[in-house]
Write a protein that binds this DNA or RNA. Structure first.
Lengths: 235, 235
DNA sequence: CGCGACATTGAGTTTATTCAAATACGGTGG
DNA sequence: CCACCGTATTTGAATAAACTCAATGTCGCG
């Protein structure tokens, strides 16, 4: 039932969860080999291009998604049509958890950088988690992780001056990584993440560049002056 | 093991979960009578005065709390010492869920209005949920509820002009209720909820009063002009 | 009555927004 | 390969909003 498919090849493939290189960090980290035999349903794998939508707010889906590579934005809309990005989903994150509760998706999930995902049918996760306390616990952990992230966005990215918010966002992008190198998002997206206008985001980034807090080493590859960004973020 | 104690009497009592008037809506909603017999540990009940702290950020606790009446704020701090309120906890809400994962509390939980809580030892919830799928599901639901709330605070309460944010906060306070009557928080707390200064919160509320969008019917009891507040919130 | 805490108001300054224009960039077709 | 187009970014100038700091008002309580 399980078949090896390389990511590159697969626009629409079947994943080999047992051999998955991310097993240490994904939802199934603590499953035993025999558990995988219960995975009668194949786990589909997709590669999504920039700008595509993984799922829409309000849709009632039956799959959650683990991200192998790439970045997605979770977007909510205000009655006046303006958008707000509430979270980013990156490698080893899971999104669409809400559908295990039978709820419709709460956001639009839109690809910011080419993204590889595995689609986990609710039925599969549900069945496995009933017999498997480790998986159940891991589910709780994922929810908590999302909640922690949501709180951090509120305190770090929606509080203080535009300069502070941009600095904190940049630092967040290189956290976990060992290098202080990252690529940036469109200014419009930055604005929607930080609760500021596109122009203010642009002005702030441009100013940071002039002050050499950001150095473009390659097209859309920036080296960060993390110590000084920290100073700006905190004062 | 279980004993009847009225709330009024109890500064520090033992709850009778089986007879609890909130059973329909609390965590234990779906438990059977026989499940309650497994509740060998008594569930303590507390009444907390305004300004007291239920738990502190960073503490490693072994209890989560369900709120019977009252309001708590969940507060996080920035490195510069400024505070941000990330959520309110009200009747039938549960807080401190993170300690079931062995994580320290993520916030300070501070009482805004006199609050009655029941303290649920992690051990109890953990044991019950292992054998009881309904409770397990309810736990997931609680996390999702918190996450939804967190997202709403970002999109509704941290986006747009001060007037819009205040209007949205006010409307949020009377949502679920059938009356459009509510009491307000200290301006400093409002500011910390909305990401604006105390003065701006005060000015906005004062202006709303002058425009009769808010009418004080009794000390700190306000009647809201919800239609016009909606107009302000959305345009 | 007076004290302390909180709310309101005022004035001046800073910051962010708006709307518009100019510039850079990536990709396509000639 | 280059010219051109559409899109995104940057910049400018004027306006509006929010912030800061200070002063004044209000209310409850000892």
């Amino acid at each position: 039932m399980v078949k090896i498919v390389s990511f590159k090849e697969a626009r629409d493939g079947v994943a080999d969860c047992l051999k998955c290189s991310l097993r240490e960090s994904v939802l199934f980290a603590d499953l035993k080999e025999e558990d995988f035999e219960k995975l009668h349903d194949p786990i589909d794998q997709y590669t999504l291009p920039v700008g595509s939508t993984l799922y829409h707010s309000g849709d009632k889906g039956d799959r959650m998604y683990t991200v192998r590579t790439g970045i997605l934005k979770l977007v909510q809309y205000l009655p006046d049509g303006s958008q707000r990005i509430v979270r980013l989903i990156r490698s080893t994150d899971i999104t669409g958890l809400e559908c295990i509760l039978g709820e419709p998706y709460q956001h639009d999930a839109v690809v910011l950088q080419e993204t590889e995902v595995c689609a986990l049918p609710v039925r599969v996760v549900d069945n496995l988690s009933k017999e498997n306390p480790a998986l159940h616990l891991e589910l709780l952990n994922r929810w908590q992780r999302a909640l922690k992230e949501a709180d951090a966005w509120l305190t770090e990215l929606s509080t203080g001056s535009a300069k502070q918010r941009v600095a904190r966002l940049l630092l967040r992008l290189v956290k976990d990584t060992h290098e202080s190198q990252c690529s940036l998002f469109a200014r419009e997206d930055m604005g929607a993440m930080l609760g500021i206008t596109t122009e203010t985001a642009s002005r702030t980034i441009a100013e940071f560049k002039r002050q050499s807090l950001l150095i473009e080493t390659a097209p859309n590859q920036f080296l960060l002056d993390t110590p000084n960004l920290h100073r700006i973020a905190e004062d």
